[in-house]
Design a protein around this nucleic acid. Structure first.
Lengths: 329, 329
DNA sequence: TTGTAAGCGTTATCAC
DNA sequence: GTGATAACGCTTACAA
């Protein structure tokens, strides 16, 4: 399976083709070259198995064909799906992906940025939690779900609309006493709009709603307590819950069932993300699905745009409601 | 959040520190340098925010500090967990990870190898399905789960022992009529030993066992039919199933339940991998868990070893049985 | 349109 | 131990 080879250089190709070094370079950069020359160079390159050395090219022209993706982790299905789609979108454009997982550690995030800057990538796509992140001005950066400033394009789902749709669906399906559960980091992000949209839609329709908002470090305990306390005599004083992620939703569904409630008969639940079961591909819950392939494409597209003079500061992609068995539809 | 900077070079650091260029280089390569000089250089570098340009270094010394990981996908929890752990293991050693997903497409796998070779990575860790994969002899390569030849180190779980343990557990828990279900690619791999170990252990204990072995493209249909056909009058003629992956196990458990069987009361099931539920972190089934962090560490360790003269051709790491509710323990 | 030559930032080889 | 200098493989003016 292994194969010998003493990596040929442009000089070798030039000699083989009987042309000058510069001509070979031009061929590989799609610059105008006499057709007969181009052919000879291509044949010579083929014969020698030549490939441009991207480090030499990177050194000379600061174009490395590499983009760095920075993610908190890649075990969460949303992130791993994102990683896969970014990787594919980059492959299509003949770019490579440098992946770094930060464990949501702000200082490590900063360190990663430094490391990839040193590595001279053509750009960075980051889903980070460090609000003070310092990124070198000449490294194109696209943020996922976090709006740093107008100068840094942010790609996200239409979280606000997603929250609205969740509320409308629950109401349409008969709910009148709604709950919004949210757990996440303290860092402000686009995802916060899920709750805002949800509440706005409830208010608009005059439907009662309450919120429980926690930080990651609180764990699910307070949610459980809330649910328990709001079931006097075993009957819940709520009939629908919108959770800010599918992960939270599945956890809440488990708790509800443990507490003797039926989902979706007694309580309907909608999550957010559109995570699918690893085996069957079915949903864990009814959900507002994020368009991950499109998000990935938008990130790559925005990052690699030729003209970076006036980039959009926010790119919002439409979400879609998908029934997943935890609502009565 | 953005910050100005016109990337300083070694020359700048040298000037700032009042030393020669070569001295700066030595400091950054941990070569012997007078202590006072080292200090001055470090201060100057700090002050200027200098970082070595890894492309220049890569061009000159062919050490790029980058390793490529090639995986079929990163949405399968086993692969994504692997990716994350490889990434972390590399980060610890100050290496970057270039990730490529191949979609199990053999020709694309080959193309990826070419691409990363062009990118001059320090090594490749690959989980591939192309049996004819051509890898440049001077690019260190470590294979996951596939034994190409003695020259290519392969890292895998102790699949044989895992199969044995699965059989022993099921027998210990009262099973007497066992089934082995396997689905996967045609390409021979270490994972094939799961079935071998299972069967050997059954034979050793004189316990009846049958196998159903399918190819990915067959889908689960034939398994369902097999199960149905082997339940005359609703009573299965088997009482334990070992599946070659957790994914398959969860699918079979679903089917068994649809067919009116109770798991684990009527039929006990053990899977392989140790995949955990994305939300709760609980297992999907009783399983033979692969030591993914250790596998990742072993890959990186083997790939980056200084002395590559006599590498092991196979590194087998111990697996462990974990009850997950689909066995009676 | 083609060939020549000067670097890009590092590392490594020498004299000092 | 330290400091000039020649590569590494490529791109890109610029000259032919």
């Amino acid at each position: 399976m292994k194969v010998k080879s003493s990596t040929p250089t442009m000089k070798d190709v030039a000699r083989e083709a009987g042309v000058a070094l510069g001509t070979v370079s031009k061929v590989f950069n799609d610059l105008p070259v006499g057709e007969s020359y181009r052919l000879r160079v291509e044949q010579a390159a083929q014969k020698l198995g030549y490939q441009v050395n991207s480090y030499a090219r990177g050194l000379r022209s600061s174009k490395t064909g590499t983009v760095s993706l920075i993610l908190p982790n890649v075990t969460d299905p949303f992130f791993s799906f994102m990683a896969e789609n970014v990787c594919l979108a980059l492959s299509r454009r003949n770019y490579r992906m440098l992946l770094t997982v930060t464990g949501s550690n702000p200082s490590f995030e900063q360190q990663c940025i430094r490391m990839v800057e040193q590595n001279k990538v053509d750009g960075i796509i980051g889903l980070t939690y460090n609000p003070l992140l310092q990124v070198n001005d000449n490294t194109p950066f696209v943020s996922i779900d976090r709006n740093f400033s107008a100068a840094v394009p942010c790609v996200s789902s239409d979280n606000y609309a997603g929250g609205q749709v969740a509320a409308e669906k629950l109401i349409e399906l008969g709910c009148r006493r709604l709950l919004f559960f949210r757990i996440g980091s303290d860092v402000a992000g686009e995802a916060d709009k899920r709750g805002v949209g949800f509440q706005a839609a409830c208010d608009l329709r005059g439907v009662e709603h309450r919120s429980v908002v926690l930080n990651d470090r609180d764990g699910y305990g307070p949610f459980r307590e809330y649910l328990q306390e709001h079931m006097p005599g075993g009957t819940p004083d709520f009939d629908g819950i919108f959770c800010n992620t599918d992960r939270l939703a599945t956890a809440m569904i488990d708790i509800l069932r443990q507490l003797g409630q039926r989902v979706p008969e007694d309580v309907q639940v909608i999550g957010f993300d559109g995570i699918r079961h690893f085996g069957s591909g079915s949903l864990y819950c009814s959900t507002i699905a994020q368009p991950v392939p499109q998000l990935a494409e938008a990130c790559v597209d925005t990052l690699l745009r030729e003209d970076r003079s006036n980039l959009p500061s926010l790119i919002c992609l439409p979400v879609s409601y998908i029934p997943g068995g935890t609502t009565r539809d």
